[in-house]
Amino acid sequence: MNWAEFFTMGGYGKFIWSAYGAAAFIIILNVVLPMRRHKKVLHMLRELLKMKERE
């Protein structure tokens, strides 16, 4: 099997790769977004607690 053949997938390449691509995109989004939100919330809580300290 060569790589060109692998990417063509017997003529179904565009279907297979767009399906896998869409799935990968949604899955990666489900990792990146919660991680970013967690960092953001931690940051906000730190700021909030600092403010309380000053009062």
């Binding site: 990792v31 919660p34 991680m35 939100r37 967690h38 919330v41 931690l42 809580l45 730190r46 909030l48 607690l49 600092k50 309380k52 300290e53």
Partner: peptide, 26 residues
């Protein structure tokens, strides 16, 4: 688990133990 941890932080933000976790002493 990742999403639940964030939920815990938001929902329990007024609890004293949260301060220990975020690393700021009240």
């Amino acid at each position: 688990l990742m999403r639940m941890r964030t939920e815990v932080l938001i929902r329990e933000r007024h609890k004293s133990w949260i301060a220990d976790i975020v690393g700021v002493k009240p």
